[in-house]
C-alpha cells in the first residue's frame, strides 16, 4: 500500500508550477543580479538591450547597406574605405565602433569570413551569427578547406576564382559585399536588399540571382 505524504505532494506541486528556470538560466539570473547590485549593470539594462536588438538589429541592416552600395558607386567607395561610418549613413542606429571592414566579391575573388579563435561577429550590426558560424567544425574547416565548406552550402567556385578567408577578431570584424546579380538594373533598393542573405554577408553563399522578378 502506498503512503500519502501531503507535504511531499505539496512540494512537488510547487516545483511543477513554479516555472523554475533551467540551471544555466538560473545561474545567469544570479550573475546579472550581482552585477546590478554592485552597479556594473543597470537594472533594466538587459531588457533594454533585448528590446533594441529586436527592433534595430539584424541582417536587414547589412542588406540595406549592400543595396545602397550596389546603386551608388560613391557610397560603395566610402563603404570600402570606412565601413563603420558608411554603415551609419544608411543605418543611423548602428553602433560605429566595430572597426568593420567590408570586403567586396568580384568575378575573380570570393570572400569568406570566420573567427578561428571564438565567434567574433558584428553582432550589433548584423545580429547574432548563425549556429554553424560558432561551431568548432566551421571555425577549423573554413581556413583549412574553404572550398569544401562552400560546396556544402551549395557554392561551387570555378577554379580561377580566388578564395580569401578573413579571420575576425575582437577588434576587427568583416562583412562580405556580394556582387549585384545580373538582371536587376531597374530594381528598387528595397527589392535589392531583399535579395541579400545573412549567409551571403558571411560569404558561404555567392550567387544572389533572383529566382523570380522583383517585388
Amino acid at each position: 500500500m502506498s503512503t500519502y505524504d501531503s507535504e511531499k505532494v505539496a512540494k512537488l506541486h510547487r516545483e511543477l508550477h513554479s516555472h523554475l528556470p533551467s540551471e544555466p538560466a538560473l545561474r545567469l539570473k544570479a550573475l546579472e543580479t550581482v552585477l546590478v547590485e554592485k552597479g556594473f549593470l543597470a537594472a533594466d539594462g538587459v531588457d533594454k538591450w533585448l528590446e533594441d536588438y529586436s527592433e534595430n538589429v539584424g541582417p536587414m541592416n547589412g542588406a540595406k547597406v549592400i543595396a545602397q552600395a550596389w546603386t551608388d558607386p560613391d557610397y560603395a567607395m566610402r563603404l570600402e574605405q570606412d565601413a563603420d561610418a558608411a554603415f551609419v549613413e544608411v543605418v543611423p542606429t548602428a553602433p560605429h565602433n566595430y572597426n568593420l571592414r567590408a570586403v567586396f566579391n568580384t568575378p575573380q575573388v570570393h570572400n569568406l569570413i570566420v573567427c578561428t579563435l571564438c565567434s567574433c561577429y558584428p553582432l550589433g550590426l548584423l545580429g547574432m551569427s548563425p549556429s554553424w558560424y560558432k561551431s568548432a567544425e566551421y571555425r577549423a574547416r573554413a581556413v583549412r578547406d574553404p572550398r569544401g565548406v562552400l560546396s556544402e552550402f551549395g557554392t561551387d567556385l570555378l577554379d580561377d576564382v580566388e578564395v580569401k578567408v578573413w579571420d575576425s577578431t575582437s577588434d576587427r570584424r568583416y562583412m562580405v559585399v556580394p556582387s549585384r546579380p545580373a538582371g536587376t538594373d531597374d530594381w528598387s533598393k528595397d527589392d535589392l536588399a531583399n535579395l541579400v542573405t545573412r549567409n551571403s554577408m558571411i560569404g558561404t553563399v555567392r550567387d544572389l540571382s533572383p529566382v523570380g522578378g522583383a517585388g
Binding site: 533551467s22 538587459v46 545580429g127 547574432m128 549556429s131 561551431s135
Partner: peptide
C-alpha cells in the same frame, strides 16, 4: 554538414540574455 542551422537567432531566452550581459 556545417550548414545545418536553426533560423531563430536564439533558441532560448537566456542565450540572448547572456549575450546582452
Amino acid at each position: 554538414s556545417v550548414c545545418q542551422e536553426s533560423t531563430a537567432d536564439f533558441t532560448e531566452l537566456w542565450h540572448a540574455q547572456v549575450i546582452a550581459v
